[in-house]
Simulated scan of single mutants.
Amino acid sequence: MGRLIGVSLGPGDPELITRRGWAALQSGARWAYPVKRAEERSYALDIAVRGGLAVPDDAVELVFPMTRDAVALAKAWARAAARTVELLAEGRDVAFLVEGDASTYATFRHLARAVRELAPEVAVDTIAGVSSFAAAAACADVALAEEDETVAIIPAAYGVGLIDHLIDEFDTLVLMKVKPLVDEILDLLERRGLLATSCFIEKVGSPEERVVHDIARLRGETVNYLSLMLVQNPKRARGELRRGCRKRAASVGPASTGLPTQPITEAG
């Protein structure tokens, strides 16, 4: 059996493909790439093409429909996993192209699990990549976290109730896939006085990249599916931090060892 390799390509800019990812794509492995519908353009494949890589003639598309229909999804996953196992059974590695990072909200982890259910012996290699929110913070000139600040990354679909709660718990919120809730999120941020410390990034790294700091003007606009918001709360009250080393009592005393008790320290 060949290896299943998740090749992270970054969110859109081919210059963010790592050296290891680039090498995997030129290693002779069979390419597989995700599409929403058969014979549709693949965003992940486009990243590789814009980087100057030639698509191999035997590259294979795997269909992962954008639906919440559990039956349709189960059938699609089963087909994709079965096809991948067929390819791996030829003894050749399969490089699955992943936009962003393969370990972060990525189709690849689902595929790897489904493949291993069919063929437990398959080796899986995950090549890390640049996540969309890391690239978004860089292009928007925003720090995700400094010193002791905290960060939470959540799908915006959890709703404004949870977002409102987390604003007080974290210094920075990364809201993924904000398309369906843009106006509701804007209302919340306006109410909390955080419009000025939030920004919107769409299709980061791609030729259609858009960064919006004056996010109030997005109200009523239909944004792209590949979009996120970075929300920062500089007024958040923080708890006390425990710093340095702390002592804890030895678990075994002199009565059982005949040795004097010594304090044990561990990193704080």
Rank of each mutant, 00 (worst) to 15 (best):
R3V: 10
L4T: 04
L4G: 06
L4V: 10
I5K: 04
I5F: 12
V7T: 02
S8A: 13
P11R: 13
P11Q: 10
D13Y: 01
P14R: 02
E15C: 02
E15L: 05
T18I: 11
R19M: 09
R19Y: 08
R20T: 13
G21I: 07
W22V: 06
A29K: 04
W31G: 02
Y33C: 09
P34L: 08
V35R: 02
K36D: 11
E39M: 11
E40S: 15
R41N: 11
A44I: 11
L45C: 06
D46E: 15
A48D: 02
L53S: 02
L53N: 04
V63L: 04
M66S: 10
M66N: 07
M66K: 14
A74M: 05
A76N: 07
A78I: 04
A82P: 00
E86I: 04
L87I: 03
L88V: 09
A89D: 12
A89K: 14
E90H: 07
G91E: 10
R92G: 13
R92Y: 09
D93L: 00
V94Q: 06
A95V: 06
A95S: 06
G100R: 12
D101P: 15
Y105M: 08
A106H: 01
T107D: 02
H110F: 14
A114E: 13
R116A: 07
L118I: 09
L118H: 07
P120V: 07
V122L: 05
A123V: 14
I127L: 15
I127Y: 03
V130C: 09
V130R: 09
S131D: 00
A138I: 03
C139T: 15
C139L: 13
A140E: 02
D141E: 12
V142Y: 00
V142F: 12
E146L: 09
E146H: 04
E146P: 01
E147G: 01
A152T: 10
V160G: 07
I163D: 06
H165V: 05
F170D: 00
F170L: 01
V182L: 09
I185N: 11
L186I: 02
L188T: 00
E190R: 15
E190M: 09
R191W: 13
G193M: 02
G193L: 00
G193F: 00
G193R: 00
L195F: 01
A196P: 03
F200I: 03
I201Y: 02
V204P: 05
V204T: 12
G205N: 04
S206E: 14
S206M: 14
P207M: 10
V211Y: 05
V212Y: 09
I215L: 05
R219C: 10
E221G: 08
E221D: 05
T222I: 14
V223R: 00
N224K: 15
S227A: 14
L228F: 04
V231P: 01
Q232P: 04
K235L: 12
E240K: 15
L241M: 14
L241N: 13
R242G: 08
R242C: 09
R243S: 14
R243A: 13
R243C: 13
C245A: 13
R246W: 15
R248A: 06
R248C: 04
A249K: 10
T257G: 10
G258D: 05
Q262M: 06
A267C: 10
